[in-house]
């Protein structure tokens, strides 16, 4: 059972600080929603956890063991357990849908192809794409691509799934098909961190919501409290703006 703890995390893009003194706990089975204005560092948290942006201070602890991001082996070990879905899907353009889902389990992890393909078909059926196995990413709509990306992440059998604004690049009518898929995962008890601007969705699906601003955690709590009775002025102003439209 995964248990992810972030303590006193700082991160920088060059000289610009993007996260300061962040504390966060993602316990097994939790769905943690990250909200906040653009540039508040929500996506950066996910990138830092994955080692795409090494932390400059603080620590990330997975199951009681501090991850040393200077050691490639430790980053690899973490990436075996944590998967991510990107805002821009990042599907491999040279591969079909089925290949996109199967390539890592088969080529990188060495699982038997037949078994992986069966699982991939199941996953793709689950996200409603059973009939798109041999399509290429650029033949699919954004919503379909994003669901392939989710299936690809699930095929890695992650213990923790990070979702980075997965609906931000989608047409409004495609958003719901992706959200339905994520709802399903939350019901199944998948441990997730979700960065999103879909406030209604975050409120519904999260077990806990974290409001971020300027690279800091401003407030954290159950969705009802964050959205209905925020304690901090910064949160109040953000939430009231969101609710007004």
């Amino acid at each position: 059972m995964p248990d992810l703890v972030i303590r006193g995390l700082d991160a920088h893009y060059g000289a610009t600080p993007v996260l300061s003194g962040l504390d966060l706990h993602v316990e097994s089975g939790a769905t943690v929603g990250l909200i906040g204005p653009s540039g508040s560092g929500k996506s950066t948290i996910l990138r830092t956890i994955l080692g795409l942006l090494p932390p400059s201070r603080g620590e990330i602890v997975l199951d009681g063991r501090r991850v040393d991001y200077a050691k490639p082996a430790e980053v690899r070990a973490l990436r075996e357990r944590v998967a991510v879905v990107f805002q821009q899907y990042n599907l491999f353009q040279n591969m079909t849908v089925l290949q996109n889902v199967c390539i890592t389990p088969v080529k990188i992890r060495g699982r038997p192809r037949r078994e992986v393909e069966d699982e991939a078909r199941r996953l793709l059926a689950k996200v409603g794409l059973a009939d798109k196995l041999s399509s290429y990413p650029d033949q699919l709509s954004g919503g379909q691509q994003q669901r392939v990306a989710i299936a690809r992440a699930l095929a890695l059998r992650p213990e923790i799934l990070l979702l980075d604004e997965v609906t931000a690049a989608l047409d409004p009518e495609l958003v719901s098909e992706v959200l339905d898929t994520i709802r399903l995962l939350a019901r199944e008890g998948m441990t997730m961190m979700i960065v999103s601007h879909e406030m209604g969705f975050i409120r519904e699906v999260s077990s806990r919501v974290v409001f971020m601003a300027d690279g800091r955690k401003v407030e954290e709590g159950p969705p009802a409290r964050i959205f209905d009775a925020p304690q901090e002025a910064r949160t109040q102003s953000f939430v009231s703006k969101i609710l007004r439209h």
Partner: peptide, 20 residues
């Protein structure tokens, strides 16, 4: 983003270049 996706799934540099 193609390089990045491969990196987060533990592709080595050579695997990334050859396969993706």
């Amino acid at each position: 983003n193609q390089w990045e996706a491969a990196a987060t799934m533990n592709f080595t540099l050579l695997q990334t270049i050859r396969l993706v």
